[in-house]
Design a protein around this nucleic acid. Structure first.
Length: 559
RNA sequence: UGCCUGAUAGUGUAACUGGCAACACGUCUGAUUCUGGAUCAGAAGAGUUCAGGUUCGACCCCUGAUCGGGCAACCA
């Protein structure tokens, strides 16, 4: 059934629909996602991926994956592999083979030679410091390079020798001859090529010169027939240059890409800069790019996020041009929303305390039928063995509970989920005053699902102490305790690290059905939250990562 | 002091292109519940940065201010 809700269009969709209605680009929509393989993709990239691939799909167009690999000093194949994996995992498929800017090095070079012939580019022998100094400031115009008026022949000769590897790194660059007085800094004779004797992850040592982003990007879009080249706001100032480079090669009969900028994603309590994320990895503040606390796609995956939840998040945050900081709460809402529908409910006690049912026939047990997910009737049920020796959550018992505490306390009654109503008769403390065992009686007439028994306020989860399996559970919290850790002028983002971002629990007791859980399997630990099996988990040593806790209106109320 | 760009509830995004501001998250009630989850019902919360102008009528158009973001890598 078609949803005929007239969902409003974001500004990019409006542009596209206008183009379409005017018959621009022959009615074609062709987008691209152009990551630089110099790090792992993060949730901000996910926004861009969903945008670009989403637009391609929505308008029956196509979307390329293109690696913007013009800087061999920073790029590695490891990143290429992880990026492809992440894009696929998110559920998108790029058109044909992945593309690489390096596929176009030859063509780019030829066009550069043409520009030299037409007097539009020149070789500059100065150092980067000298060039930088001559560029002026946003307020003051720059001045001409002393090499700006070299002859075409000399420029061509020098450029070819740069290519041939005759000169050391940094000794010369090729610059576009534009306007040193332009109020737009990008237009002040930007560098097109620099010398880099560095091995490239794909072209090896074939090239000793590499094109700069501004020169390579638009031309690559052009070569691929991209119609809508979507990038983030910081490239707004580059648009005139993007268009200028295109002007030098564009054929009127060829699709001409247009650059459209949108505001990148910012998430509260997290950092999004690849450089800073790299720093966390290199300083071993996190275990790696896929540490579950990282906002990387691989980190979120390991944390237990689903592709669906990330896509619906991207959908919810929208696309616009104004700077934004999205509340991480919205991301968390998105996972809960999805996992609530699909994650099987299981019993897990993270901080166990012994509970003994004193009137239960000793030595006996019984099998109880427990539904797997009340939100999903298709999910069926499973059987759990119930007996007199149990574990419950330490939090679920209080020696002197307040009135609103709907759990266990001396003389209080509570239901054990899927089992019976029990009453706390007594409890035992050790010499340190720590409760070590709770003694209860159960009411055999209150078995779950049988008749309409009386109601009690609270329901607890439990595990059978004789059958439980052990597990390690990792509780994650936000990595930073400041809303905008990178937004402080005189303070480093590392000053805001949350010391409690990871809490490892080693004495957790799980229902036995979890013994065979596999990495990335997702569950709702009843009453606690959503948990996902870590990639390093094994049957001998189960490890679960907490994706996100359940909403808890008790903690709010109790404080 | 230059150029580019943006400004709508706490946060994000809308408003059929001029017809007295909606949706989501969050918050707060209440119902329901064998998860203090989910679900359901409801409420509070902005008069659209400010000041002028055009108009019968302005979030939308014009003028001017204010505030925010970006730009001076041989990074992308």
């Amino acid at each position: 059934m078609e949803n005929i809700e007239p969902k409003s269009l974001n500004f990019i969709e409006q542009i596209i629909e206008k183009d379409l209605s005017e018959g621009k680009n022959g009615g074609v929509v062709y987008t691209r996602f152009p990551p630089e393989p110099n790090g792992y993709l993060h949730i901000g990239h996910a926004k861009s991926i969903c945008l670009n691939f989403g637009l391609g799909a929505k308008y029956h167009g196509r979307t390329n994956l293109r690696f913007d690999d013009t800087n061999p000093t920073k790029e590695e194949d490891e990143y290429v592999q992880s990026i492809m994996e992440d894009v696929r995992w998110l559920g998108f498929q790029w058109e044909g083979e992945p593309r690489y800017a390096s596929d176009y090095f030859e063509q780019l070079y030829l066009w550069a030679e043409e520009m030299i012939q037409r007097g539009l580019a020149y070789v500059d022998d100065q150092t980067s410091e000298e060039i930088s100094a001559q560029r002026g400031t946003p307020q003051k115009p720059g001045i001409f390079s002393p090499f700006r008026n070299r002859s075409v022949e000399e420029n061509l000769d020098l450029f070819r020798r740069m290519k041939a590897g005759e000169f050391p790194d940094g000794s010369r660059v090729l610059r576009a001859k534009l306007d040193m007085a332009s109020p737009n800094m990008q237009m002040r004779d930007p560098v097109m090529y620099r010398i880099l004797h560095s091995s490239h992850h794909r072209t090896g040592n074939k090239w000793s010169i590499y094109p700069m982003y501004d020169y390579a990007h638009g031309q690559s879009d052009y070569l691929e027939g991209i119609t809508h080249s979507i990038c983030t706001l910081e490239f707004e100032n580059h648009k005139p240059l993007y268009n200028w480079f295109l002007d030098q090669i564009a054929d009127v009969n060829h699709v001409r890409p247009q650059q459209i900028e949108f505001a990148r994603l910012n998430l509260s309590y997290t950092i999004m800069s690849k450089r800073k994320l790299l720093e966390l990895v290199e300083k071993k503040i996190v275990s790696g790019w896929d540490d579950p606390r990282m906002p990387t796609i691989s980190g979120l995956r390991r944390r237990g996020y689903t592709p669906e939840s990330i896509r619906s998040f991207a959908d919810r945050i929208g696309v616009a041009k104004r700077d934004n900081i999205i509340d991480v709460g919205l991301l968390e809402f998105s996972v809960r929303d999805h996992l609530n529908k699909v994650a099987p409910r299981v019993f897990a006690v993270l901080d166990p305390v012994k509970l003994t049912i004193t009137n239960y026939p000793s030595g006996s047990s019984e099998w109880l039928e427990i539904e797997n997910n009340p939100e999903d009737p298709q999910s069926g049920s499973r059987k759990l063995e119930f007996g007199p020796n149990l574990f419950i959550e330490r939090d679920d018992f209080m020696e002197n509970p307040p009135n609103k505490f709907f759990r266990l306390g001396p003389g209080r009654e509570v239901r054990l989920k899927g089992a019976y109503i029990i009453k706390c008769e007594d409890f035992i403390k050790d010499e340190n005053g720590v409760v070590v065992e709770i003694l209860c009686t159960y009411d055999p007439t209150t078995k779950s699902g049988e008749g309409q028994s009386r109601k009690v306020k609270g329901t607890l989860h439990w595990v059978n102490a004789d059958k439980a399996v052990d597990a390690e559970v990792r509780l994650y919290d936000r990595l930073f305790n400041d809303e905008d850790p990178a937004g402080h002028k005189d303070l480093d983002f590392l000053d805001f690290l949350n010391p409690d971002s990871l809490q490892i629990l080693n004495n957790c007791k799980l229902e036995p059905t979890l013994q065979n859980a596999n990495p990335e399997d997702k569950f709702q630990f009843q009453r606690l939250g959503y948990f996902s099996v870590d990639k390093n988990s094994s049957q001998d040593h189960l490890i679960f990562n907490r994706t996100v806790p359940l909403k808890d209106s008790w903690v709010k109320q109790s404080k």
